[in-house]
Amino acid sequence: MIEHVKTIAKQLLESGQITGFLSLKKEHGQIGPHLFQSVDQLDYLCLGDTTGTENRESSTEERYSGTVESKPEIETNRASGKQENQSGAGKSRYPLNKILVRISRNYPSDCFGILVRGCDERGLKRLFALNQLDPDKVVRVGIACPQDLADECECLEPWPDKWVNDTEKTDGSEKEKIDGTEKSDKAPHEPVRQKLPCESVARLESLEARDRFDWWMEHFARCIKCYGCRDICPMCFCKECSLQDDNLVRTGEIPPEYPVFHLARAVHMAERCIDCGLCSEACPAAIPLRTLYKKAGDIMSNESGVRPGYSDLTPSDIGNLPQTGEY
């Protein structure tokens, strides 16, 4: 799959259609976001896999116990291009949308390509609707997440509208090249959409109210107010944050005042959260924020029938919907 992505990126860059291709780059053994601006850099492009099919936890353990040597590990990785081909998108994720917003604020007239997973694309759709990105200036190249990752994320739609398909040849028609990918009739694997409400949410809802309160308090008590959830959130694009307003959230104390801090963020997320889960991943205190925002999303879709980023609504449609934009 990665070779296909590279080919598409190359075509896009060479045709001059995009100024840069925002994707992940593997360098110095680390994966990070990178704006590829020239074709020869594309060798470093990666889809987010750290160690192929192995998950990150076990590799960390192995490293700590000193049983695996670091250098060969990296080489295995580089050599395992084939494996990546099959496993598809890996676990290393970054808020590429958020970075794109920042880039295009500085270069408003340029067009950029971006590697998108299901969550990334949901984010893009919301950002289009919220005027943070111009759909005409973004070319999406989609990749689908593997089943295990989708399950772990409880992702309702772990693929974008169009994604690079292994079986498809990339040297198709011109249109296909430009769009990067063709919509496939068949989903790459089973979505979790049927499982509403999500297991994590349902589990909590089965508790007594007071137990639920204690459960959350235990989590919120760990918050160190690092703003990591906000800083990584692709939907948090405000220049100034309410949560840093002294009137709303008292400064100078951790854990931050409950419920103001966490619920205010949950309310702000209500119409925004595209359920990418980066907040939970980024949280150093391991607060299950995603579960909270998932619930906020559930309520919103119950109330208004709209789940941010999921429906194929155009920005103008969203503007006309009576129930959106209220929160």
Binding site: N131, F237, G325
Partner: peptide, 26 residues
């Protein structure tokens, strides 16, 4: 205007059509 990012939440909710967008200044 220093902190506004033109997400238009205000615009959509204003019952008096008092809010307009200024795309130049975003």
């Amino acid at each position: 205007s220093e902190t506004c990012v033109m997400c238009e939440d205000c615009l959509k909710i204003c019952p008096f059509e008092a809010i307009t967008r200024n795309p130049e200044k975003m």
